[in-house]
């Protein structure tokens, strides 16, 4: 079994992010493997651990993103594909899906896994668009995944509950971070990751161009960022408990109108 996992490098959410002149200002040194991608890698490793085969991770990103490929290799993925795009500005979910589809059209796999969304944009679109472009059976927001007799059985979280969906292989599944607890790379894993193959691919190799993708595929335009307004301070009441209760009930009833 070969599972291709699309992973993404994102800013560390615990690092301070500020808005400066309408754009995000991030500490570029603190980039990490997206948590949803990490769950997809973990799930792929569990599946190949049980059924044999190997995991390949695919990442679209600048040179610096190679460190994120290495993290996935240290977790246990067998190989990596780095689709090198140095200037990522202006690329949207459709662009990522276009680039990833071009790669997958020329590679083989039994399943493609992605995060259900990524921690940076939280758009949650790339996986679905990629499945459509590759014409693959698709299931989003998986919280469980098993494989039997050439079919993948997905447990997915819906709005009202969980449902089980059976997908023919090859297929595409987007993974929730509730699916598992991604393993922490061991020192041996880190050591071995240095020896694992990482193939670098350019857009040109995929028959694409950055201008072409930006001009023809990208359908969204960032208009800028605004700070979220801070929360209004709450009201504090002091005094006799009996009076406080009637005061509170009165406010909930007449001002907040929630009773």
């Amino acid at each position: 079994m070969k599972i291709s996992v699309c992973i993404k490098q994102v800013p560390d959410v615990s690092a301070p992010i500020t808005i400066k002149d309408g754009t995000l200002s991030q500490d570029s040194d603190r980039m990490v493997l997206d948590a949803y991608s990490a769950s997809a890698v973990e799930e792929a490793l569990v599946l190949t651990g049980a059924h044999g085969g190997e995991v390949e991770v695919v990442l679209v990103g600048p040179d610096k993103a190679k460190e994120t490929i290495r993290k996935a290799l240290a977790m246990g993925a067998a190989s990596g594909v780095h689709i090198h795009v140095e200037d990522m500005s202006g690329l949207d979910s459709a662009a990522f899906a276009e680039i990833l589809a071009a790669w997958h059209k020329q590679s083989s796999y039994d399943a493609v896994l992605t995060g259900k969304q990524s921690q940076d944009t939280d758009a949650g679109l790339t996986g679905g668009m990629l499945a459509w472009k590759l014409d693959l059976p698709y299931c989003a927001n998986a919280v469980g995944l098993t494989y039997e007799g050439g079919k993948f059985l997905v447990k997915r979280q819906g709005d009202t509950g969980q449902e089980m969906v059976e997908l023919e292989s090859p297929c595409l599944v987007t993974c929730s971070n509730d699916m598992n607890d991604p393993r922490i790379p061991s020192l041996k894993g880190i050591m071995q990751s240095k020896k694992k193959p990482v193939k670098t691919v350019t857009l040109d190799d995929l028959g694409l161009s950055l201008d072409g993708v930006k001009g023809g595929v990208v359908k969204t335009e960032g208009k800028g960022f605004k700070d979220v307004p801070g929360r209004e301070p709450g009201k504090k009441f002091e005094g006799d408990p009996a009076e406080l209760v009637s005061q509170l009930v009165n406010l909930l009833d007449n001002e907040a109108k929630v009773l």
Partner: peptide, 13 residues
């Protein structure tokens, strides 16, 4: 890069 990966792994653990 090895050192940074090691730090990240052990800190996480």
């Amino acid at each position: 890069e090895d050192h940074n990966m090691i730090r990240e792994s052990i800190r996480d653990f």
